[in-house]
């Protein structure tokens, strides 16, 4: 669900870049120095997963996006994390692109932040593995659906003729969203049982300020 290089005209690309810059600035402010390693490691893990994990679907397979999970684990820090991850993807594997980096960061990052507000606390307070699983499913489905809407919106804004791509990809995306939901559910359920600390924002040890 990337906007490829060249597709977005200047106006859409600029709007995306501005929104992304705002979101990333908020994310950087929310992210304490102590949380940088955590954000980086979660981003790396999700980056690796989205590249190498192939979830079988019929004769084909889909790769997970996991932006709902990123939001639940990182909060606003998911914005800069996605910026970095998407930049690296463009550089190393030619997914997305630099002129569309802003749009793609918005498409992936804002749904993640929405999931943080919607689900993070509920998952933390969930008592049973089953409840966490269901909340995970909801987070995965919500994030990817929102991403799809943002993606489709920016494509249609880029050119009415591009709407055909949205129409054709509607059905495949339904399948992808379903699988993403189930997958995120299992991950969240697993984390809730094995390592519930994952959903707490890290204990911040105060760095000593200048004496």
């Amino acid at each position: 669900m990337h906007i490829t290089e060249g597709v977005a005209p200047a106006s859409v690309a600029a709007a995306g870049a501005l929104l992304a810059a705002g979101g990333v600035a908020l994310g950087l402010r929310a992210m304490k120095d102590e949380q940088i390693p955590r954000a980086a490691l979660v981003a790396s893990a999700i980056f690796v997963a989205s590249l190498v994990i192939r979830l079988p679907l019929g004769p084909s397979s889909v790769h997970p996006v996991l932006n709902g999970l990123a939001g639940v684990l990182l909060g606003w820090a998911a914005m800069p994390a996605f910026l970095v991850a998407l930049f690296l993807q463009a550089l190393l594997f030619q997914f997305g692109g630099i002129t569309t980096l802003g749009i793609n960061t918005v498409t992936m990052g804002f749904p993640a932040v929405a999931c943080y507000y919607l689900f993070s606390r509920r998952i933390r307070e969930s008592k049973k593995g089953r409840e966490a699983f269901l909340l995970g499913v909801a987070a995965g489905v919500t994030a990817l659906t929102l991403s799809f809407v943002l993606w489709a919106g920016s494509l249609i804004l880029s050119g009415k003729q591009l709407a055909i791509i949205v129409k054709l990809s509607l059905l495949p995306h339904l399948a992808i969203v379903t699988i993403e939901g189930i997958f995120t559910g299992f991950i969240v359920g697993f984390l809730a049982r094995v390592y519930p600390k994952a959903f707490e924002m890290p204990h911040i040890i105060k760095t000593r300020s200048d004496p």
Binding site: L41, A49, I53, L66, F183, I187, F190, K197, P202
Partner: peptide, 21 residues
Amino acid sequence: TYRTYGYLMGMLLVRSLVRSE
């Protein structure tokens, strides 16, 4: 399969979080 991959990813995240600490 989805559950197994989910647990694999979960384990990867646990290791990442512990490592980040």
